[in-house]
Amino acid sequence: MKKKAEILVVDDDPDITDSLKIILESHDFTVRTASNGKEAIEALEDQIPDLMILDIMMATDTEGFDLAYDLKENPKFKNLPIIMLTSFLEKVREEGPGNFAYILGEQWPAHWLFEKPLDTNRLLDKIDDILNESP
């Protein structure tokens, strides 16, 4: 690897961002964090990371999604790989046809979706996969 890959972690729960930062940094990633959509945009404008880990439910139930869709529509960020997190995978899955209709369609803006609490090893594997995929 030429240089350390950079990951932006966006979650309103500092326990999650802090622990992910520690874990990811010890696996040789550069990590920045943001605690809401607005901060995330600022961080992205500052510098585009190699990957973003994004929580779905923050201030609103769909804040993470809204951000992801905005980014997909923005030519500047549309190639940014995203891993989404949710505490309520079931909610996402079951309410899919309703509130989260657009999640399940082809327009799905993320590369992957993990349920919290996270399985650290699977997260790391997935990050490697995605980074190796996109040059």
């Binding site: 326990d15 802090d18 622990s19 992910l20 874990i23 505490s87 919290k116 996270l118 650290t120």
Partner: peptide
């Protein structure tokens, strides 16, 4: 709980 387990992981 998710936060707690995440910290425990660390």
């Amino acid at each position: 709980l998710a936060g707690m387990l995440s910290i425990l992981d660390v």
